[in-house]
Amino acid sequence: MGIMGICTFYFLVPIWWLFVGATKSRGDFSGTAPLWFADFHLGQNLSELFAYRDGVFLRWMANSVLYTGGAALLGTLLAAMCGYALAKYRFPGRELIFNLVLGGVLVPATALALPLFLIFSELEATNTFWSVFLPSLVNPFGVYLARIYATASVPEELLEAARLDGSGEVRTFFKISTRLMFPALVTIFLFHFVAVWNNFLLPLIMLGNERLFPVTLGLYTWNGQVNQLPELRMLVLTGALVSIVPLVVAFLLLQRFWRSGLGAGSVK
């Protein structure tokens, strides 16, 4: 029990500190006890944050949601389709595709960022929404997981029965198989969401226009300017707090799914 207590302290105190810090005025932040409240200043901090430079922070949040939510939704669907086909059909090239995908899992995404930048600059497409969004759609680990889950949760007999009823393969996939795979799909979605939300090198290399930044890159640039513009410090802190809210909420809401699905990939 002692270990659990110490660990809880270790994991939660920094978040508590961030929350308390974001409720303070600039003077109180460095002048009062860091782990307890002083004058409650969160409202002013938030309105200052949202108003700063024409509300660029809200723009960054919206960008992040678009990049991440969009890429994770669409990416999960594509990975599910591909993994499902690899699990349920025999066709020439199946092994090759699976091995390429597996290799893809081991190739770090950051190693791809620079060559992607070079390719996009030949197409004169860097510094656009698509230059970050399109590469973020690809999730080989999702295909790998989808294949495992499809094998485990979609029985052959059911597919046969659907065929006898005259249901086409695509229809069967969307009407029956995706339902059976749903908890697994939520897991893939969450993994993908976190991976894109965390991706830093790709937007850092690809984007020059501040209006296209995801929130992580935006906070990073502000944090780099704190020494010249000390008033940014409270904005960075408040922004950090706001930026972690969506993901924490998503985790809490989708708890029962990721709990059941998370381990399946490693057990088999």
């Binding site: 978040i15 976190v194 965390n198 993901l247 924490v248 998503a250």
Partner: peptide
């Protein structure tokens, strides 16, 4: 919970 916080 910390896993929900981006590395940056």
């Amino acid at each position: 919970v910390p896993y929900a916080i981006p590395g940056v």
